Simulated scan of single mutants.
Amino acid sequence: MKYLMFIYQPKDFDANALTESEYQAVAAQYAAVTATPNVTPGLPAGLPKDAVTVRVQNGETVTAQGPYQEHAVGAYLEFEADTIDAAVELAARIPAARLGGAVEVRPAQKYW
């Protein structure tokens, strides 16, 4: 089964505040996750301040600056695994999960 992982960076995370060695360690950890077999990395999502949230109300398109959620998705990836436990194990390796952010794991399945 395919699982989607939405990576939420901590709101106050500043990569520029890391030392060079800390930054290199985090970058290496992300690289190791994306090099894992059956992982398909997605594109980085960009900064929340640049997001536009779109709704349609009474037939009219309404936009609002910013992300839909308080914590914006920083990136996503797909992972094919036999169980959700394997997906959770991979999610725990993603640096954002231990640096104050979170990783949401969802089965990729139609529900409509």
Rank of each mutant, 00 (worst) to 15 (best):
K2H: 14
K2E: 15
Y3R: 01
Y3V: 09
L4V: 15
L4Y: 12
L4I: 15
Q9Y: 06
K11C: 00
D12A: 02
D12T: 13
A15K: 06
A15T: 08
N16K: 14
A17Y: 05
L18M: 13
T19R: 02
S21R: 11
S21C: 02
E22L: 01
Y23W: 14
A25Q: 14
V26D: 03
Q29K: 11
A31R: 12
A32Y: 00
A32V: 00
T34Q: 07
T34N: 12
T34Y: 12
T34F: 13
T34C: 03
A35R: 07
T36K: 01
N38P: 05
N38S: 11
V39T: 11
T40M: 04
P41M: 03
P41G: 00
L43E: 13
A45S: 07
A45Y: 04
L47G: 11
L47W: 02
P48S: 02
P48Q: 03
P48N: 05
K49R: 08
A51I: 02
V52F: 03
V52Y: 06
T53S: 11
R55L: 06
V56E: 13
V56S: 09
Q57M: 05
N58Q: 14
N58A: 13
N58P: 03
G59I: 08
E60A: 09
T61E: 10
T61D: 00
V62D: 10
A64L: 07
Q65G: 01
Q65R: 07
Q69M: 11
Q69T: 14
H71N: 11
H71Q: 12
V73A: 06
V73E: 02
G74W: 06
G74Q: 03
Y76D: 13
L77W: 11
E78I: 12
T83K: 09
D85H: 12
D85R: 14
E89N: 12
E89K: 07
A91V: 05
A91H: 02
R93F: 07
A97H: 09
L99N: 03
G101Y: 07
A102P: 03
A108Q: 13
K110L: 08
K110Q: 14
Y111R: 14
Y111F: 15
W112Q: 15
W112G: 15
